[in-house]
Design a protein around this nucleic acid. Structure first.
Lengths: 215, 215
DNA sequence: GTCTATAATACGATAGAC
DNA sequence: GTCTATCGTATTATAGAC
């Protein structure tokens, strides 16, 4: 079976292949999942190594120690979220359109990275956001807040606290995914992560939020 | 310093006092905090024991092992949440009033138990809700869903998916607290857990949700 | 750059004294 | 009912061969 060295390297078959970038990427992916589940303190280097198909020595070679790996893992979604919002060019859309676009993008991002929300909850509750501070989240939040402020100024949106509303929007867009493994036991017959159900949730979120903020 | 055996027993001063109920309660409180931060696998029995002012042997004596303690910890909020909703007698209020009452109660509960939300996120993501299933959450959710269904039937609320809206409401009411330790770094000058700020958030949540669901 | 082997510590659980 | 002491195992991190 042919396999590009840049793509996935399965755990057992291919050792001793030298591809530093691929190795680091595999470690980061595995670490993101492990840290999401267990946070910094609970994550097991051995588990990350196994999932990535490398040895624990490799992890220490590239990332010094568990904390170094953790910091690197947190950085990726921080910059990604910022870039996603930046590239939406929300400032060129009327407030209602911008808000709709924003909600759709946020939920799509959650659906594409269903584990990442937990990464931040772990960080908040285990480390009091000590490493969260290192990201450029203030700027990322500002994209959302500006849309709301613009809507208030134009009187499309009612008088509301932009920051508080921003938090509420993020809560709506993320809870569905972060709590999914519990929620699925409430309605076991429905696969709420299917594309159809996610689209349904997205539409419902747009409806609730837009009706909720309109003047 | 006089101290009731039923109240808190500080870690270092008072050992060897026999008060089984107080001891169990202290272990449960300490365990709730530890499990909230680290989940089942990441929690340290030693840390729970220290926080509770007992030895690890005591924990094994009362709860058999870590899993037994975990199950007992999860049960408390499950029954409490159900009871809180039950005692609100929502069925006696018109839908809008019921929804308002519900939101206020949910946020007040979160504010009183700011760690418990994480307990469920840990459970969802570490154990896929295996122990969540043991609670009576289906019934608890039903209280909220019934309010929404009643509002739709009376045409006070627009046509919406009651379950999905229920999830959205919980997301709004909980995210603020679960993510607080990260959020506080975005606006470091504001104490968002002060009574005034929590009341402000509550009012904003009522406004958003009621405007969001109205016909 | 990757591996094997191992040192050093941390943790869950139990036995047995009081 | 509570404590001290300890066994066995799991885990992080490093040293050194290839």
């Amino acid at each position: 079976m042919v396999r590009s060295a840049k793509t996935k390297r399965s755990s057992n078959s291919s050792r001793q292949i030298r591809d530093p970038e691929a190795t680091q990427q595999q470690i980061l992916d595995a670490a993101e999942e492990e840290f999401s589940k267990h946070g910094l303190s609970g994550a097991r280097i051995e588990a990350i190594a196994t999932r990535a198909g490398v040895t624990t020595a490799m992890i220490h070679y590239y990332f010094e120690n568990k904390e170094g790996l953790y910091k690197t893992v947190l950085q990726r979604p921080a910059t990604e979220c910022h870039d996603v919002l930046h590239e939406l060019n929300l400032e060129n859309l009327p407030p209602e359109e911008a808000l709709k676009t924003l909600i759709r993008a946020a939920i799509a991002y959650e659906a594409a990275h269903p584990r990442r929300g937990m990464l931040w909850f772990q960080e908040a509750n285990q480390n009091q956001g000590k490493y969260f501070k290192l990201g450029n989240w203030q700027e990322t939040f500002a994209y959302i807040i500006k849309v709301l402020e613009r809507g208030i100024a134009e009187e499309t949106f009612r008088q509301l606290d932009p920051f508080v509303t921003c938090i509420q929007i993020i809560g709506i867009c993320t809870f569905y995914f972060n709590a999914h493994e519990n929620i699925k036991h409430i309605t076991p017959d429905v696969d709420r992560l299917s594309p159809e159900m996610i689209e349904k949730y997205t539409q419902a979120a747009v409806n609730l939020i837009l009706a909720g903020v309109r003047a």
